[in-house]
Design a binder for these strands. Structure first.
Lengths: 240, 240
DNA sequence: GCGCAGGTGCGTACGCCGTGCGCTAGGGTG
DNA sequence: CACCCTAGCGCACGGCGTACGCACCTGCGC
């Protein structure tokens, strides 16, 4: 047994515990999870991957987060916290509601994974940011003149529309984010298959033919705005 | 080595290959997958579980289905195939569109897992049943007098609304299906927590207070119908 | 100075998962 | 009879979420 096999009780010999990062915290973990989800989608988030991005072991995360499901709930509420603040509120009811809707859609498209996650966990009972957002929107409808009971339904109608539209846009965007390709590449790659699939359906075929070459982002935008105005039209019929 | 350790080359000695089931087929697999999904939700569907329900090994399924993702696509299109057929079409545009919307919602609520799955895979490019359904609905809007380009947007608006509403209802229903409890049990169990959470938000608090004791299924139904009529109102403003 | 308590991070391990691969046996065809 | 084709299976691999218990750091009362 030679001397250097003995453990040397010296600070310099020990591996110098790495503590340069401000340690692990719930906020850090959630923020990094959101970053990973944005970059690579829901499937790519595993506790091991997330841990290694934070220079930590997978199981260390469990000191700050009870489970992966809870982590998702926290991530979803973090996104709710990102929604644009109320705004000037000077303009009329229609403009304010439209702005909220546009902000909601924009946020979903920035984090496309959230659409599928919301569909899993539901919209009710979410965290404080989600509640604050609902409260604000409900106030907006009440101020517009909807009686309280109806304001709730009117708000749900608008939110349902926005979520429905954004969900299908988001599914497309997450697929692209996951695969790493560009939107244009994927469009060009899938278009022929789509045209072949709709061959037997004259109206769908005409629709595809008419849209060939359009910028999909722009036509999604137009389509969203069209439906938004229709929903607002329909709600307005209930006001004096 | 005694005699009965020798393999006996007789039909009666062999374990009698079980072939009473008409073997494995893609249709059988998809049908059983849908059944399992309805009963226990997305998480519960694993190839091993599905295989054992069919008296088969997990990897045997791969002879008929390329991957689990493909199995989900087939399951989703199977549900599209379940949508109510066009119907008499005698009544006006509004009634027909409303019926399609109600049928869509009812189908989603019967298979609540499909909402989250649709949010993952997107609504476009799905199987033949989905395409047929879109073609029919598009025809309905064109017949109502929408010019072709706008008919597409109008249809998307309606579908987005229905999907958005049904998605959040479905999330609730799948949670209940997964857990095995009853709707009433869960409502009673979660209500106090929800009331506590909305304590600081007067409008949300008032809403909960007003709804205490209501039948949630009924008020979901009412809320859906309210929004449906508003969306149809909004679309109708574009017709002569 | 010293022991102690509480909390943080990690290594290991368990039981799942999707699925690739190569074998076997049974039925159809020459 | 020989032959091949194919459905089904057993095994194995790498990855997953996470329970558990140990090692260590920090701060406190003595």
């Amino acid at each position: 047994m030679s001397a250097d096999e003995q453990p040397i009780p010296s600070v310099w010999a020990r591996p110098r515990r790495e503590r340069e990062q401000p340690a692990l915290s719930r906020e850090h973990i959630v923020a990094e999870a959101v970053r990973l989800l944005d970059e690579e989608g829901t499937e790519a988030l595993s506790m091991r991957r997330l841990g290694s991005r934070l220079n930590a072991g997978a199981t260390s995360l469990y000191r700050h987060v009870a489970s992966k499901d809870e982590l998702f709930e926290l991530a979803v509420d973090a996104i709710y916290g990102e929604l644009p603040p109320p705004g000037p509120a000077a303009a009329g009811w229609r403009e304010s509601a439209g702005d909220v809707a546009r902000g909601l859609r924009a946020t979903i498209l920035r984090h496309p994974w959230i659409a599928a996650k919301l569909a899993e966990v539901g919209l009710a009972f979410l965290g404080p940011n989600a509640l604050r957002h609902s409260e604000h929107l409900l106030g907006l409808f009440e101020a517009a003149g909807f009686p309280p009971a109806e304001a709730d339904q009117a708000m749900s109608t608008l939110v349902a529309y926005v979520l429905g539209v954004s969900t299908s846009e988001a599914a497309w965007l997450s697929m692209i984010a996951r695969s790493g390709g560009s939107q244009r590449e994927w469009t060009e790659r899938l278009w022929p298959a789509a045209e072949r699939a709709v061959q037997d359906y004259p109206r769908l075929r005409a629709r595809y033919a008419a849209q060939r070459g359009d910028d999909p982002a722009r036509s999604n935008e137009d389509s969203f705005e069209y439906g938004l105005q229709r929903v607002l039209d329909g709600l307005q019929t209930r006001l004096p």
